[in-house]
Simulated scan of single mutants.
Amino acid sequence: MQSIKMPKSTNKQKKDFYRKHEIPKLFALLEEYPLRHQLIVKFALFGGLRRGEIAGIASDVIDFESNQVEIKRSLQQSTKGLRLKDTKTEDRRIITLPEQFMKDLYNYYIKKLDLKKEMANLWKGFEDVNGKEVFLLFSDEYGIPHRPDTLTQFWNRFVKRHKNELRRVRFHDLRHSSASLILSEGVNMKIVQKRLGHKDIQTTLNLYSHITEEDDKKASDVFDNFM
């Protein structure tokens, strides 16, 4: 057996996602929660962002006039504590988000600025790994960011509380929900690749083959009228 290679582990969590008809229910349940939590979930769903990317969003990457956000940093938990790192070049991208979402984000941003003024000298703020001070949106009252895993913890509590009203998926599956939904609406696969920050389009194709299979069925249905 020494000359035989060990097989690769296939113990991967199954990807799931919310369907189009489930989204309104999700949003209705979220209305009971603080705006911060609503924005975090919608960033994952509307933008297809990873939790570290959401936790690392700062004011300098947001363009409220064009409704766009540049994804160029990610907050990571390391043995040395929280680190705000630049994302890999292939992961950097600019995404356009819904107008109403950006209005809600702007209102949240203004309140965050007001909090900073109220805290005055107590405000500590945060720096990225290059030593640049950044104004993180999802931070505590001192400007210190919350750990990325707290996003998952909130989501787990949320879906557990509403287990009888909403199907349970992982927080990361909101990213899959985003891609699956826009693909099902006919958005080009290349655009989906760009929004998700995949270096290779084959990665996107492999992850969302279930959508292309559904499209293939639709393509076949076109010819049913001729039979």
Results as ranks from 00 to 15, higher is better:
Met119His: 06
Phe154Asn: 01
Glu31Leu: 12
Lys12Pro: 00
Lys112Arg: 13
Ala28Ser: 14
Thr212Ala: 08
Ser9His: 03
Leu97Gly: 09
Leu207Trp: 00
Ser177Cys: 03
Phe135His: 07
Asn107Ser: 14
His210Thr: 02
Val41Pro: 05
Gly56His: 01
Ile94Gln: 08
Glu214Arg: 10
Val129Cys: 12
Ser9Asp: 12
Lys111Ser: 11
Ser177Gly: 07
Arg170Gln: 09
Leu196Ile: 13
Asp215Trp: 11
Tyr18Cys: 11
Thr150Gln: 09
Met102Val: 07
Arg167Pro: 02
Phe64Pro: 02
Leu181Gln: 02
Lys42Phe: 06
Leu97Trp: 04
Asp114Gly: 10
Tyr18Ala: 01
Leu151Gly: 01
Glu165His: 11
Ile95His: 02
Ile71Leu: 07
Leu29Met: 06
Asp215Thr: 07
Arg167Thr: 11
His21Leu: 09
Ser78Leu: 09
Pro34Val: 07
Phe154Thr: 04
Lys72Leu: 09
Leu113Ala: 11
Pro34His: 04
Leu205His: 02
Phe135Asn: 10
Leu136Thr: 03
Gly81Trp: 04
Tyr33Met: 03
Asn164Lys: 15
Gln76His: 13
His146Gln: 00
Thr10Cys: 06
Ala219Ile: 07
Lys85Glu: 13
Ile201Thr: 09
His176Tyr: 11
Leu35Gln: 14
Val192Leu: 04
Lys80Glu: 15
Glu165Trp: 06
Met6Trp: 06
Glu22Ile: 08
Ile182Cys: 04
Asp60Ile: 10
Ile201Trp: 12
Leu35Pro: 02
Phe126Asp: 00
Phe135Gly: 00
Asp16Ile: 00
Leu196Cys: 13
Lys117Ser: 14
Val69Ile: 15
Val61Pro: 04
Ala58Pro: 01
Leu26Asp: 01
Asn121Cys: 06
Thr79Val: 11
Asn225Gln: 13
Ile144Arg: 12
Gly48Val: 09
Lys15Trp: 05
Tyr109Thr: 10
Gly52Leu: 05
Asn67Tyr: 12
Ile201Asn: 07
Ile71Asn: 07
Phe135Ile: 05
Glu31Asp: 12
Asp60Arg: 01
Lys80Ala: 15
Lys72Phe: 10
Gly186Met: 13
Val134Arg: 13
Glu22Asn: 07
Asp91Gln: 12
Ile182Tyr: 12
Thr96Tyr: 09
Tyr109Asn: 11
Ile211Asp: 02
Gly52Phe: 07
Asp224Glu: 15
Arg195His: 02
Leu122Asn: 11
His162Ala: 03
Asn11Ser: 15
Glu141His: 08
Arg19Asn: 13
Phe126Tyr: 12
Ser66Met: 06
Lys14Leu: 09
Gln13Arg: 14
